[in-house]
Design a protein around this nucleic acid. Structure first.
Length: 644
RNA sequence: GCCGUUGUAGCUCAGUGGUAGAGCACUUCCUUGGUAAGGAAGAGGUCGUGAGUUCAAUUCUCAUCAACGGCUCCA
């Protein structure tokens, strides 16, 4: 007998070789029908795998993240089974579970798969799922595994085997499909009740653009039809808050073929948002001791050679223009310009830290396939600043930048983000990263300490640093789930020396400053794209392009409406009268759809009592009040940049 | 840049080898109506662009541009 300890602390005895499924059955049949996998001594196992020793056990169902990912991983195998049955000879690479669903990468050997094929595959998968085929686990020696795949001529699985140790190799078979796989898997295919293959995409083998491109099929599955429907419904909802759709509907920005891809034209409504954000940034940066600067959009090649950008990023800069034998580049970043401002005057430790801020216009020749609405563009306005400081001042400055982020996030109610400490990749020193291994480790540790001391939760990722130093990135997700860096706070131990920057320290000796690059609001483009999605277009009043719409019941009240408009304008409130000869219901509907925060309905009653009937977008009628008190309250809401 | 899909009116979308249609938006007129769509009439498109096949192309083929879904990239 073996002792099984359950999550509630209960210890039960079972015969040696019992499975998690046996344990579930001993608790209840209903539970047994829901068990997808099991956590055995901290490791995720098949629910059908025999347990030979005492163990702690947690049964995993659809309610557990690992239960879900096991379900989706098994679904990927089911997809592969369907593909193999439909397109014989296909070679498979890997098929993992992802955040929402799964994919499988495969080499179709020159064939291509269409949307119609996806439907066929879905059908086949449903057919195969109904067979309730068990996922059978089998251990195999490395040699026989190599033999197996050599006979099959499967170079992909052989490649996978190369990275595995003898003794770690397991195979899983369900129905007619066998795959090299670490597992675990759900008990049988019958759990998979609802299947949706979402899209087909190309994906480079081993994520390397130099390798062959495989075909990737994405899908998502559920234990019930209802959950799939709910998921599809949710996707529809997400599309409604896509900034590209809202940007068009609300007149924020437009793109034009004649202007060029990735070059947004900001319309009047979008420009208002930009100006409000800049105002916020100016106020915040003034308070934090920043000084504003303005620099040109172009600079000579020599400067980007000095900075070291050109060797790393020439491909993603617009090609140089040549004038009088000198090459000029459109600037892709503001830092070198700012360094030149630092260098324009002799600096002493008394000037430090020196904080130079600019909403600088940058141009980056992003790859065509990467352009994405406002989130990834070729002309961008960075909420940029560079802080020049001593090593001693670094921690305080870095911390202050982080708290500026958090201050902004509070204003905008941003809570769904991940702070990422982006480090260098030691293998790419000298290629992607400046070859200063000790400095890397030293500064990375400085940044890590600041994060830990400030109690900011973060994840560490190697290979995401800037070429000149480590950074903290704030990662966010677009409505459709694509990940972006919203804000960034970077340490730069390289450019100071490259530009020969120095200040005189207390001992009258020259010293190279450390530089912090920071962009807490990222770029206008990405930030506004993000905000549109974040607020689903319902911007807080201080940001809303139109803040108040006055809706007269009929033309008779137009003069009264105009007097209200005057009071609003005097208070610098963005307002307008809907003077169309439409019924009030129509005016309200149109204003609601344009997501104007406040509507003032005025008619006979309001005019006699010198009031306005206030209607809040999305909330409905708030009742009548005097014009004066409405204006005063609104001024407060706008000044304090209140969210709701 | 790569793989795949798409491209018809301002927007959302029908449709056809014989030079195009709906709803909303727009314009004009009627209507002056109390909290999410009042009525009528009208205007609007060389069907992304270029070439080829054909008596004839918006429709078929190719190229190109752009957008979309991914991959790669992201100072």
């Amino acid at each position: 007998m073996i002792k099984i300890t359950l999550p509630d602390g209960a210890v039960r005895e079972y015969p040696k070789g019992s499975t998690a499924l046996d344990v579930a059955k001993s608790i209840s049949e209903g539970l047994a029908r829901k068990v997808l996998a099991a956590n055995v001594n901290g490791e995720v196992w098949d629910a059908t795998r025999p347990i030979d020793n005492d163990a702690t056990l947690k049964l995993l169902t659809w309610q557990d993240d690992t239960g879900k990912s096991t379900f989706w991983h098994s679904s990927a195998h089911l997809l592969a089974e369907a593909v193999e049955a439909t397109f014989p000879g296909v070679k498979f690479w890997v098929g993992p579970a992802i955040d929402k669903g799964f994919y499988y990468d495969m080499d179709l050997d020159g064939r291509s798969i269409s949307e119609e094929d996806l439907e066929k595959l879905e059908k086949k998968m449903n057919e195969l799922a109904k067979k309730n085929s068990q996922y059978l686990r089998k251990e195999m020696s490395k040699d026989s595994a190599i033999q197996y795949f050599t006979e099959k001529g499967d170079e992909y699985k052989l490649d996978l085997l190369g990275g595995l140790k003898d003794g770690d190799i397991t195979f899983y078979t369900q129905g007619d499909f066998t795959d090299l796989c670490r597992g675990p898997h759900i008990p049988h295919t019958g759990f998979i009740k609802a299947i949706k293959l979402t899209n087909i995409a190309g994906a480079y083998w081993k994520n390397d653009a130099n390798n062959k491109q495989l075909t990737r099929i994405y899908g998502v599955t559920f234990p019930s039809k209802q959950e799939l429907d709910e998921y599809l419904q949710m996707l529809e909802e997400a599309k409604k808050r896509d900034h590209r759709k809202l940007g068009k509907e609300l007149g924020i920005y437009t793109m034009d073929d004649d202007v060029g891809p990735g070059l947004p034209l900001w319309m009047p409504n979008g420009t208002i948002i930009i100006e409000e954000l800049e105002q916020l940034a100016k106020e915040t940066e003034n308070d934090a001791g920043y000084k504003r600067v303005v620099t040109p959009h172009i600079a000579k090649e020599s400067m980007y050679l000095t900075s070291g950008h050109l060797p790393y990023y020439a491909d993603s800069m617009f090609p140089a223009m040549e004038l009088d034998g000198t090459k000029y580049y459109l600037k892709a970043m503001n830092c070198p310009h700012h360094h030149k401002i630092f260098d324009a005057e002799p600096r002493s430790y008394k000037d430090m830290p020196l904080r130079l801020a600019e909403y600088g216009t940058c141009y980056r020749y992003e790859q065509s396939g990467e352009l994405f609405g406002l989130m990834r563009v070729r002309c961008l306005h960075m909420n940029d600043a560079h802080i020049y400081c001593s090593k001693e001042q670094f921690a305080d400055e870095f911390r202050a930048v982080n708290s500026m982020y958090l201050k902004y996030f509070k204003i905008f109610g941003i809570d769904k983000y991940v702070m990422r400490l982006s480090l260098h990749d030691p293998e790419k020193l000298g290629q992607k990263y400046i070859n200063e291994p000790e400095l890397w480790i030293e500064t990375e540790e400085m940044v890590r300490q600041v994060l830990i001391e400030s109690n900011i939760p973060f994840v560490e990722v190697a290979g995401e640093g800037a070429f000149y130093g480590p950074k903290i990135d704030v990662q966010i997700w677009s409505a459709i789930g694509r990940e972006f860096t919203l804000a960034t706070n970077q340490v730069d131990f390289a450019q100071g020396r490259r530009f020969n920057l120095s200040y005189t320290n207390k001992d009258n000796a020259p010293e190279v400053p450390l530089i912090i690059h920071r962009a807490p609001l990222g770029t206008h483009e990405r930030f506004i794209g993000f905000l549109l999605e974040h607020y689903a277009g319902k911007l807080p009043t201080w940001l809303a392009p139109m803040q108040v719409k006055i809706l007269p019941i009929s033309d008779k009240y137009m003069d009264y409406a105009k007097s209200i408009l005057n009071s609003l304008k005097k208070a610098d409130i963005r307002a307008e009268i809907d003077d169309r000869s439409e019924k009030i219901g129509k005016k309200i509907r149109d204003t609601e759809l344009m997501k104007v925060p406040y509507m003032l309905v005025v008619g006979e009653k309001e005019m006699t009592e010198q009031q306005v009937s206030v209607r809040r977008q999305g909330k409905g009628d708030l009742g009548a009040k005097s014009v004066e008190s409405f204006v005063n309250e609104l001024i407060g809401e706008i000044k304090e940049r209140r969210g709701e």
